[in-house]
């Protein structure tokens, strides 16, 4: 039973990583704390709900295409947001970035209410994805396996981009030292724009996957942003691989916590977040 729970927690963890990866990427490069990340996620979910009946409804191919398409749509929205607004405040106070992303949260939430109402919506899974791989007592739902695959794909492709491409080298440099990249004559603005777009894309597809996994409503943004913050903070702000381990850890703490301390698992996770923050700071001062 414990093995089943751990496995289940790991699967949930990969999905948490998918949610948080965009947020940590954006923070790592541009030091923007994107409060609107949860809103982009929610947009991805509702857009998928909206367009999936139009694209080969009921087939896995059509389903995945609509999620991908919604990811691209959300990426475009993120791109526009970055180009028109966010770009103006990179050199202003950090608080101005807070104002803008908070404004985006309020606007997206009300637009969601306007377009899709207050009721829960959900995407019906294609039959081909609604089963499970059964091994003895172990049920591995096909759809969750698909989500894990996507999470791994995202991780591997981000890793490959960061490691092997020129853009990746610039990104890593930007994460370590923003000023240096500028000194090297690379247009920082382009780097920021690209990363914000990719981050929004990741939020969008994560939301798309959620739409068929659970029942979504306009309150999704707040819940998701807090989850994403937990993962990003425990993993170390801006640290992609840290976020992976944090996400897996949070998933397992939840799946085991509900057996042993059913009412405390959330408190434990937030305590962990606080301890990690304090511990990191002590270590920094100690150096």
């Amino acid at each position: 039973m414990i093995i089943v729970q751990v496995l289940q927690g790991l699967m949930e963890g990969v999905f948490l990583f998918l949610i948080a990866s965009g947020l940590t990427l954006i923070f790592g490069v541009s030091r923007i704390v994107n409060f609107a990340h949860g809103s982009f996620y929610m947009l991805g979910a509702f857009l998928t709900y909206q367009i999936h009946p139009w694209i080969a409804a009921g087939t896995p191919g059509g389903f995945f295409t609509s999620i991908l398409l919604c990811g691209v749509l959300v990426a475009l929205i993120g791109l526009a947001f970055e180009l028109v607004f966010l770009r103006r405040v990179y050199h202003a106070e950090e608080l101005m970035q807070l104002v803008l992303t908070l404004a985006a949260v309020l606007i997206v939430r009300d637009l969601t209410k306007f377009f899709w109402g207050l009721d829960d919506v959900t995407v019906v899974l294609p039959d081909a994805l609604s089963g499970a791989v059964i091994m003895g007592d172990l049920f591995l739902p096909t759809y969750q396996l698909a989500m894990v695959t996507v999470g791994v794909l995202v991780l591997v492709s981000l890793w490959a981009v960061l490691k092997f491409t020129r853009a990746g080298i610039v990104l890593r440099a930007a994460t370590d030292d923003r000023g240096m990249v500028a000194l090297l004559g690379i247009n920082q603005a382009h780097v920021f724009t690209a990363v914000f777009t990719v981050g929004s894309f990741l939020a969008g597809i994560a939301g798309g996957f959620a739409a068929a996994f659970e029942s979504v409503n306009y309150l999704l943004d707040a819940r998701v942003i807090v989850l994403a913050f937990i993962v990003v903070v425990i993993g170390g702000l801006g640290n992609l691989y840290g976020a992976l381990f944090a996400a897996l850890g949070v998933g397992v703490v939840k799946s085991l916590g509900l057996l042993w301390a059913p009412r405390l698992s959330m408190v434990v996770i937030f305590l962990l977040m606080a301890v990690v923050l304090l511990f990191r700071s002590l270590r920094r001062t100690g150096e």
Partner: peptide, 16 residues
């Protein structure tokens, strides 16, 4: 009903 949208727009204006 969507007055928070208005707040959001005002916040954007504040920044700009």
């Amino acid at each position: 009903e969507y007055w928070q949208l208005v707040i959001g727009v005002i916040l954007v204006l504040v920044v700009l």
